[in-house]
């Protein structure tokens, strides 16, 4: 189980180190495609990264509705069922 803060931190780390997004641009309401210069191919990479992080499958369809950094955090958070501690696989 990860808290929303932990997920945000991890996402921030990906955005800065993998997609060269300037740290100061990353906010919960920042738009991935318009504000952070992420394209649809990057989005696929990000999806893979998140799957590695959570060890769970996310449908690309569900990920398509994602617009902001906050949306991603919520999506990832929703992957963990309440209470049940999920096995967090952390593959870098």
């Amino acid at each position: 189980m990860m808290t929303k803060e932990e997920i945000y931190k991890r996402l921030e780390d990906y955005l800065i180190n993998l997609f060269e997004v300037p740290a100061e641009d990353i906010k919960l309401d920042a738009l991935l495609f318009d504000d952070l210069d992420i394209d649809s191919i990057d989005a696929v990479d990000l999806l893979v990264k998140i799957q590695e992080l959570t060890g769970r499958k996310i449908s690309p369809e569900a990920f398509k509705s994602v617009r902001t950094v906050g949306d991603v955090v919520d999506q990832v958070y929703a992957l963990f069922p309440a209470d049940a501690p999920a096995k967090v696989e952390n593959i870098e």
Binding site: L18, F19, E20, D45
Partner: peptide
């Protein structure tokens, strides 16, 4: 490097 970095 990872793909996303190569592209940039």
């Amino acid at each position: 490097e990872p793909r996303a970095k190569v592209v940039r």
